[in-house]
Amino acid sequence: MTTASRPALQQRSMSLSRFVIYGLLILFAAIFLIPVYMVLMTGFKNPAEVSISTMWQFPSSFSLESYGQALQVLAPGLTNSFLLVIPATILSSVLGSLNGYVLSKWRFPGANILFPLMLFGMFIPYQAILIPLVQFLSSIGLYDSLPGLILVHVVYGLPITTLVFRNYYAEVPNEMLEAGAIDGCGFFGLYWHVVLPLSLPGFVVVIIWQFTQIWNEFLFGVTVAQGTPTVTVALQNLSGSQIVQWNVQMAAALLAALPTLVVYILLGRYFIRGLLAGSVKG
């Protein structure tokens, strides 16, 4: 091999490996999008045109009828989910922020033991608390109601929101708080004037995470609030019934997924941060 031909050869093998890399990426992207393609094609077809033999083909006419039908069935579920998600997300984020502030800046003896005990709550299989949970909610009159479900999501959201804020506030230099303390700020003053103004990105991560989690949750919804079905429970009821056409089922699946999908596409960066925070190491 002469020295002159070597870069040329490398060039060629480089472009070959680029070809393989892009080829694999496009192949995987296509596989990942198969369900999306099917859902979109099915949902936009005229219901009369829907049949299994042509399920993978483009619609010959564009129709929103499936979505109309799906929306009719799913509307109460969507409403319930919004009524659940908004207060539950706000409450668990605010509590998480306060907890994170205390645990990162006001460490007290025993905090090193209490924190992992709090975190354990986000890993348990919720089956292990369901029976007493239902009894407890019945005894305080919140069983089978949205306020009960809100309470449940706030409590079991506390570990993750606390974790994210604790790690986030750990990055805030102590000097900033010390300066505030010299200016005469106490616990709340420091939180209000120093910590909270820096918290916006933390809140974005936590709010997106909680919104997605609570919107998508199913087990609590199906056990604690059957009477006020959330969107996932409504979708399952619809898909489990024999009479609903599958084009309506696919349209309903898309409608149920839309809010979290929009959030993900607009604010994906923060979504991924929440995702990675869930693996504890922050």
Partner: peptide
Amino acid sequence: TIFLFPMALSFVVTGVVWKWLFNPDAGINV
């Protein structure tokens, strides 16, 4: 974005869609 978007979905949505895709008389088999 393509590889990560399913993470934003509910397992219920995933289940409903894949249940249809895995229907032996329809979906992937077709």
